[in-house]
Every structure is written in C-alpha cells, then in structure tokens.
C-alpha cells in the first residue's frame, strides 16, 4: 500500500518537461525562447532567381501559446523581360501560435497561428506602352517607402531533432485588403513578404532551422499511457 502511494507521487518529467502541478508551477511563465532561420527562401531562389526571401523568427512560450515575431527581407528583380520591374524591402510579422500537441514531453508542436504583417518597400518600373493611336511610349518611374499590411493564418510543425535544435515548417495563408495601397506612380506588382500584390490572398511556405534556449523544464499536462 505504502509502495503504491510512493509510486504515484513520483515526479514525472523528461529532460525538457515536467508534469504540471498547479501547486508548484505557474504554467504561463516562459520556459525558453527559440530562434530560427528560414532556408526555404534561399532554396527557392536557386530555382527562381527573380525572387529572393531571407527571414528569421523568434518565439517564446506562454503555456500552450507562443508569442511570435518574424522579420525578413524580400526582393523581386526582373530586368531582362519586356517590363523591367524591381521591388525590395523589409517585412515583419507579429502574432501568436497555439500548440495543438501541448502534452508532448519533447516539446514538439503542431500549431495554428495568426499574424499581423507589415512590409515597407521601394520599387522601380520601366517598359514600353504600345497604344493604337499614340504609338510606342517608354515609361520609367519609381516609388519609395510604399507600405502594406496584411493578416495571415498559419499552420505548421516544429520537431526537436537533436538536443535544443528544432526543424519545422509553416504554411501561410495571407489575406490582403487591396484598398490599402496603389496610390503611387504605378500599381505595385510584388510586395516583399506577401507576394504578387494583385492577389487578394497568397500562399506561403517557410522551412525553419531553430535553436531553443531553455532555462527550465516546461510544466505540461502529462500524457498518460
């Protein structure tokens, strides 16, 4: 009888997590911060040299939620086509993820998240306008400090692959309100971080290599076998 009680009271924990005990733990206190770099953008750039995208992310846990910030630089450069167009600038996203597998003792996660994103960028355009009555007319113009906001829904995974290293991906569904821009010298074609501006929605994909700095074990609701 005494043995049985002792076994039940034995602390359940792994190297990264500990069973949540409401009398001992505040489950909302962060236990680590994770930094990551996207490698999908540079790989995609090898196949599509007109588009470049470099970005990083950081998240911090609050119970089964994560506060997330992502920052990056994107560019579109097409200079050997009928229309020469460039767009380059910085973007950032802030938001939160909810971990749908919060009982995982290795802190792997399947997540759903929301983001608010902003991009600031400069563009150049040159090309020729062909018109039935007015002939062929060259056009060359630029516009700077354009700014666009959009929202995103994200789903993805993060898996611990070795010690504090994680790998993971995020699939993004981006929604843009069109009236928020296009009051410049020409219509924006490409928004860094968002993609083709004409589309009111775009898909995106990131593949992250991440490192988590953990300062204590995460209290989780233990998954009973």
């Amino acid at each position: 009888m005494a043995f049985g009680t002792q076994a039940q009271e034995q602390v359940q924990e792994t190297k990264y997590a500990i069973k949540l005990d409401s009398t001992l733990h505040n489950k909302w206190l962060p236990t680590g911060v994770r930094f990551g770099l996207d490698i999908a953008g540079p790989i995609y750039n090898l196949f599509e040299p007109t588009i470049s995208n470099y970005e990083g992310m950081a998240d911090i846990d609050f119970g089964k939620f994560f506060g997330v910030i992502e920052m990056g630089r994107g560019a579109y450069k097409s200079t050997d086509s009928p229309t020469s167009y460039t767009s380059s600038g910085f973007f950032y996203r802030i938001g939160a993820d909810v971990n749908l597998t919060a009982k995982d003792a290795k802190l792997n996660s399947l997540f759903f998240g929301l983001r608010y994103a902003t991009s600031s960028f400069n563009e150049t355009l040159s090309g020729e306008l062909t018109n039935a009555g007015w002939g062929v007319n060259p056009i060359s113009d630029e516009q700077s400090k354009s700014s666009v906001n959009w929202v995103e829904m994200n789903i993805g995974m993060r898996v611990r692959v070795w010690k504090s290293f994680f790998m993971g991906y995020a699939v993004r569904f981006k929604l843009l309100k069109h009236s928020a821009f296009n009051e410049g010298n020409f219509e924006t074609y490409f928004i860094p971080g968002y993609g083709v501006a004409e589309n009111t929605s775009n898909w995106g994909f990131n593949y992250y290599v991440q490192y988590r700095i953990e300062w204590k074990k995460k209290p989780i609701r233990w998954k009973e076998n």
Binding site: T83, L125, G127, L129, F186, E187
Partner: peptide, 15 residues
C-alpha cells in the same frame, strides 16, 4: 492613368 504590371514577362499596360 496608372501603369500596371500584369507580369514582368508581359508587356506593360496602362490602366
């Protein structure tokens, strides 16, 4: 008028 890029691989258009 405002120039529109349908796609840089296409001719420039004016809206």
């Amino acid at each position: 008028t405002i120039p529109v890029v349908l796609n840089p691989k296409c001719e420039l258009e004016m809206k």
